[in-house]
Design a protein around this nucleic acid. Structure first.
Length: 482
DNA sequence: ATGTGC
């Protein structure tokens, strides 16, 4: 029986891959997909869900989000929680772009107010927020300062004058994982990170000026400060070459480690080590440093976004109400307490292309949002909608407080470049009234909306399954990209 | 995602 035929429907939008699909599986697979997506799912990605279910110490289920696709070892859109007794940590379960994530800022500006200046605003944002492969930030770090970035994340950035202290309240982990230890991060990772700090990157990373188009839940929208018709800004970016290097460094170390610890794996890309081993502990400290880099990065860009708005509209950012709604990580592993088989357990949750979606009452959420659950920021692809959802109690019960993270690629970059031209994509966007400014033409073709799974359906599946609930939809007015 | 192959 093929892996697809082995799936059993649990309820609408939820499927189980029974643990007897493969004898090494320790837990079942659990997939959040609608009937349509089940037909199109890559068998390779499903095999990856089964593979993760074979890893030592995995709890509950190997979970796949509605935007699942094939990745390195773990699928993208995969969640795996491991216990602290015999569980493991795996760099492939976090991904190359450590703490790739999304930050959203609000404004009190209306579409009418910004429309006449939109072209200018796009140019200014493009100028002030460096983007592109190998792009460099616009500051020069002092000797040793990279270590402070890695240890203190967004706290370092605020201390250095980038943005507001109040921003920190509204970042996952308050923008700093205390476990980080810059001293053990490789010189190579630091060397790559130093010039790139404060830059957007390439690929699907973007900066968007958006209009809040539709509100689905007035009460929650109010708590998040979202008002229909007003303008918001979304930053989608990660830890650049720094996080990439940290991941590469540890994939190599873990490839040795898992053999030494005699861990049997169905795929060597799942290379891992017992959580209490020295390899695992140094990975977690380095990963946290990479995550901090990404939070510092988004913090700096937020500052330049405010400056850009000030430049174009000749008003103070405070006056334009440019506060932070929230900042979420999409690629990260974290120690969290979850209910497993009725009792509370400390687990290491790997989210790779998945968003934390904590429900009401969790202490990790800012108190301002505590009664409604955390904001979940799900970016669409260029020229399409993005969404704000909120975390739910059901996510806490079923997915270790996690949901989808975005559209999910359906065409490879190469395939997309064959099928689309930059000129056509830009024309299509302009026809929709969207200003776009990209560093290189090919990136527009690579990131063509049709190269991605429809984000509307990803979000709908999360909502219908109940692992996050819709709050608002935003539409792009201006996009800058690598 | 990424000094876009090591």
């Amino acid at each position: 029986m093929s892996i697809k035929e082995s799936l059993e429907k649990v309820r609408d939008n939820v499927w189980e891959l029974p643990s007897d699909y493969k004898k090494e599986m320790r837990v079942p697979g659990r997939l959040y997909l609608d009937d349509e997506s089940i037909k199109d799912i890559e068998e390779g990605a499903l095999e990856q869900v089964a593979n993760v279910a074979c890893m030592p110490g995995i709890q509950g289920a190997s979970i796949a989000m509605p935007d699942i696709h094939f990745g390195y070892g773990f699928s993208i859109g995969g969640v795996g929680a491991f216990n602290y007794n015999n569980g493991v940590v795996s760099p492939g379960g976090v991904g190359f772009d450590i703490n790739c994530g999304v930050r959203m800022l609000r404004t009190n500006l209306s579409e009418d107010e910004i429309k006449p200046k939109l072209k200018e605003l796009t140019e200014v944002l493009f100028k002030n927020i460096p983007s592109g492969v190998g792009s460099k930030g616009q500051i020069r770090l002092k000797d040793n300062e990279i270590n402070e970035v890695l240890d203190y994340g967004a706290w370092w950035a605020v201390e250095r004058g980038f943005g507001w202290e109040e921003d920190l309240k509204f970042l996952e982990e308050n923008g700093r994982m205390k476990e980080a230890e810059s001293a053990i991060v490789s010189d190579k990772a630091k060397k790559r990170g130093i010039p790139q700090l404060g830059s957007l990157g390439s690929g699907n990373h973007f900066l968007e000026v958006q209009k809040i188009d539709e509100i689905y839940d007035e009460n929650v929208a109010k708590a998040f400060g979202l008002e229909a018709g007003s303008i918001a800004i979304m930053i989608h970016s990660g830890s650049r070459g720094c996080g990439h290097q940290i991941c590469s460094d540890y994939l190599r170390k873990m490839d040795k480690a898992y053999r030494n610890y005699k861990i049997n794996l169905p795929d060597r890309q799942l290379a891992c080590a017992p959580i209490d081993s020295k390899e695992a502990q140094s990975y977690l400290k380095s990963m946290a440093a990479g995550a901090n880099y990404a939070w510092a990065n988004r913090q700096m860009m937020s500052h330049w976004i405010r400056q850009s708005f000030e430049e174009v509209f000749s008003r103070d950012a405070e006056d334009m109400g440019m506060t932070t709604i929230y900042d979420v990580a999409h690629n990260i592993a974290k120690k969290e307490v979850h209910k497993v088989k009725g009792s509370h357990m400390e687990v290491l949750v790997h989210r790779k292309g998945a968003t934390r979606a904590f429900g009401p009452g969790r202490r990790e959420i800012p108190k301002e949002y505590s009664s409604v659950g955390q904001p979940v920021l799900i970016p669409g692809t260029m020229g399409t909608a993005s969404y704000i959802l909120h975390g739910t109690d059901l996510a806490m019960e079923e997915t270790f407080g996690s949901t989808a993270h975005g559209a999910g690629r359906v065409l490879s970059r190469t395939a997309a470049k064959k099928q689309f031209t930059a000129e056509q994509i830009e024309k299509d966007l302009n026809a929709k009234g969207i200003h776009v400014k990209a560093n290189s033409a090919p990136v527009l073709a690579e990131e063509a909306p049709d190269a991605y799974k429809n984000v509307d359906s990803v979000v709908k599946t999360s909502h219908d399954a109940g692992i996050a609930k819709l709050v608002a939809k935003v539409l792009p007015l201006a996009v800058t990209k690598g």
